[in-house]
Design a protein around this nucleic acid. Structure first.
Lengths: 284, 284
DNA sequence: TTATCTATGGAATTTATGTTGCATTGAAAT
DNA sequence: ATTTCAATGCAACATAAATTCCATAGATAA
């Protein structure tokens, strides 16, 4: 009586579902086994298709898909589909082990732990993003421009400021001449007035855009100072003024973004510039 | 009559769509531009979400999404969504592909490429490190201490300064009272003189240790101000003055360290503090 | 200012999608 | 052979989603 055992505990991630399917594969009815095989072989189809299209493709009835889902503890096909979609979203393939380690580690017990884990995971994702989104040629061009400059002007405000602050520190150590704008209000204009075509600027601005940085970049560009910029959107007003620009979207946790990937990028750029200068200095 | 020119030729892949959007971004009406920006910034959401959920997230009407799609030659929103889904299908941002992308990608052909790859890889390693080395209980205690403070004093110099600078920005947004030391030399002492037992401090110092930060932390500790600190060595002189301290070793590339993991940690701490405060405020 | 056309928000409409119910089939047990 | 129960296919149903329509607000030109 009362078939309540039908929904014990649905798996919450793809891997969990996978092992569960493999465990029960032998005991599954014919059509359900058919679906199981199809699901593991074509996970992407399950993620994107509709119940009807998937059913046709797997040569079963749509209702079979629902029964399959319910058989594994889900409320219906839709809930099962979420697992397959989440798998594509979180795809930090190769880092999935680390992420599982994260969600299963001691942190998640405590309230603040999930926040901590969230930012670590977001950091990984961000780094994956830039690895794919930064074009090598652009990076090389940016290095060329900045390494060729007499003085590198660093432009950033608000959220972006820590990035240039760090670059400033590193430039200092690496003996690269620079000027950091934005330290004290008011003197920026005088500072930037000294920039000429033989210099170059690196500007960072994330939305919401600090208009000052954008204006300053525009000003420099109008005076033939080559500008390299880093932003989080192809729509950034910075892009217009820039010879080379990079789009770098930091993954967020609960809407908050850290600067993990930006810092890696900034450091790579900084060191690459110094390295190029060293070689130029030696070679000629 | 007969508006048939409305559907000339919809882009057939994501990249085609992207360049088309960027070309016309200037001439787009307000809401359509809003959708354009959202679409390029959150492609995954478009791929998986429903028109209603996406519209809510982008703060437009569902009908605007349809108009946006039609504006770019698609029959409706659904057709446009296919492009975003296809992008995820094809882009098997697969595990091996990622690793190959890093070790053998286009970057490594170019001189600067290996530097770029190196810092991305170092970032990943750093994040792995903190995931394992930060004890959940310690993190929780640190959050407790800092969330309970009236004013949070942020202490950092040199290489560590960008971290507290970023925290300062975030605290400002989150309405947490703070004081950032080290902005202008000389006034620090006056600033810190105001700190009392009901406040708290967060100090960051990596080797080589900036003696000022260490001294300031010691000073505050002697005046019963609880100190939480972040360092890269268990032997850091900061540890002595701290109620809770974290050891966080950033992986390096060719001897240079970026701040990827530190930034993730700082942001996690910042948000956790704000979250805890919000809850304390609500509960009593 | 007025007229005209575009852009926009919100509701109505229509499409299609997931789910459930029911009759039938097939297999196992008596 | 007969009974019983699970499994399956098919069609009706209910729901949710995309799309279209219309009234209004905003911009542009006369």
């Amino acid at each position: 009586m009362h078939e309540m055992d039908s929904r014990p505990s649905p798996p919450q991630d793809f891997d969990g579902l996978k092992v569960l399917i493999l465990e029960r594969k032998g005991q599954l009815p014919k059509r359900l086994a058919q679906v199981a095989a199809y699901a593991l072989d074509n996970p992407d189809e399950i993620a994107f298709g509709t119940a009807a299209s998937i059913a046709a493709s797997a040569d079963v009835q749509p209702s079979t898909l629902v029964r399959f889902a319910q058989h594994f503890g889900f409320e219906g096909f839709s809930s099962l589909q979420q697992i397959f979609r989440a798998r594509l979203r979180e795809r930090t393939p190769g880092y999935d082990e680390r992420l599982r380690a994260l969600s299963g580690n001691d942190h998640s017990r405590l309230e603040s732990g999930s926040i901590f884990n969230g930012f670590v995971a977001a950091g990984h994702r961000s780094l994956d993003n830039i690895a794919g989104s930064v074009a090598p040629e652009s990076f090389e061009r940016a290095v060329d421009i900045l390494a060729g400059a007499e003085t590198v002007y660093l432009l950033a405000k608000r959220r972006s400021y820590p990035i240039t602050a760090y670059m400033a520190y590193a430039f200092g150590k690496l003996k690269v001449r620079y000027q950091l704008a934005g330290t004290a209000a008011g003197i920026d204009d005088d500072l930037l007035a000294m920039a000429g075509p033989r210099d170059a600027a690196f500007a960072v601005s994330f939305s919401p855009y600090a208009s000052e940085s954008v204006d300053q970049a525009r000003l420099l560009a109008s005076r033939k100072v080559p500008v390299v910029s880093l932003t989080d959107s192809a729509f950034s007003p910075l892009a217009e003024s820039s010879k080379v620009w990079f789009e770098l979207v930091e993954a967020d946790h609960a809407g908050f973004r850290s600067l993990s990937a930006s810092m890696a990028f900034a450091m790579a750029l900084t060191v690459a510039i110094a390295e190029k200068r060293r070689r130029m200095g030696v070679e000629g």
